[in-house]
Design a protein around this nucleic acid. Structure first.
Lengths: 184, 184
DNA sequence: TGTTTCATGTAAGACGTTACATGATTGG
DNA sequence: CCAATCATGTAACGTCTTACATGAAACA
């Protein structure tokens, strides 16, 4: 149930409409906790019904500006400090690695190289984000964002290195079993 | 829809019952693609209905031994080689980091230290697994398992280092704003 | 004989994705 | 006036978790 807490967290820093929150999800939370439009609107309604949020104002196009209530803030802090983070690590790319034995060495190497370059691409993207201009939010949230960004940089670097290492490992194994046409 | 492919992959390497597959999930896939009992049995029925699996034999307690069909094998290879891995990276622990500004520096540091030691614990567990005895499966799958295990080792090491770095960063920032009682 | 392990199935509900549907406001 | 953006809501469907339910075989 972390979506609720993501919403509470964003609203603890600023008042916002569902639409605004949606944009925040796309911009800053996309890589950590993505959420779709229907999910955000639905959850906001539920949070308001539960008294964790309130509609503080109404704007132009039926816009609702939500603010966090005291109850909501208490729930948020409880989540942050008292509950252990659930580690749900479903990893599609890694799952495939379990079944590399079903492929030829060539196919395995292709898979790993693709994985490495995807990680490298993602890494470059994050670096652009870090060095880019989009850092005009209010100070403290940006500091946190920087921490998370650094995590992303380290993760993608690790992934690329690992994929290259795994490819080298497989290449060596394959060579020792089926040596090339013209060995030394 | 990766659960289907996880099951197909396991059954491409060996024939197994739902119960056996469940044990394989607990042992080897737990950290990459966890699946519950009801999920496994349900998906097996669906896969058999779709013609990707067959019940090759029946055992003692109503046991069904599944084997992969040619169609299933084709689907598995297609997934492995043709479809791009979906990167769904919902990360509860990291989500919390976005909201550290809502906590006192002390609370933030506590959170990060907990995160670091959890990562360290997980790392140690994986190392025990690597150096332990449980490697008596048929050769090739173990080779893949080793690759994945190495990924886990690198990931958990990265997580620990990152958490320590983040804690140091926050501690420095906090000190520069509110210096200790007895400064130099 | 009784407990553990093997073995499968179903049902309710939470969570997530995709698509459909509608309309107001702004800006060119 | 037309397009893009702002703004919200709902419906269908798929996936995942938790819990309930049942019984056979092994083993001590």
């Amino acid at each position: 149930m972390s979506l609720r807490h993501a919403l509470l967290g964003l609203l603890a820093n600023r008042t916002a409409s569902g639409y605004h929150l949606l944009k925040l999800f796309e911009r800053s939370l996309a890589n950590v906790w993505p959420a779709s439009q229907s999910q955000v609107y639905g959850e906001l309604t539920r949070l308001a019904d539960a008294g964790l949020l309130e509609v503080a104002a109404r704007g132009p196009r039926g816009r609702k500006d939500y603010t966090i209530t005291e109850t909501g803030h208490a729930e948020l802090l409880h989540w942050l400090t008292e509950t252990p983070p659930a580690l749900s690590h479903r990893n599609d790319a890694l799952l495939r690695m379990f079944f590399l034995n079903l492929l030829t060495p060539d196919q395995s190497l292709a898979l790993l190289h693709r994985h490495a370059s995807q990680a490298a691409g993602h890494h470059a993207e994050l670096r652009r984000l870090r060095d880019g201009d989009d850092w005009h939010e209010s100070g403290k949230l940006t500091a946190n964002g920087r921490l998370v960004l650094e995590y992303g940089l380290r993760l993608t670097a690790m992934q690329e290195h690992w994929a290259r290492w795994a490819a080298a490992t497989i290449a060596t194994e394959a060579a020792s079993i089926a040596p090339p046409a013209a060995p030394a």
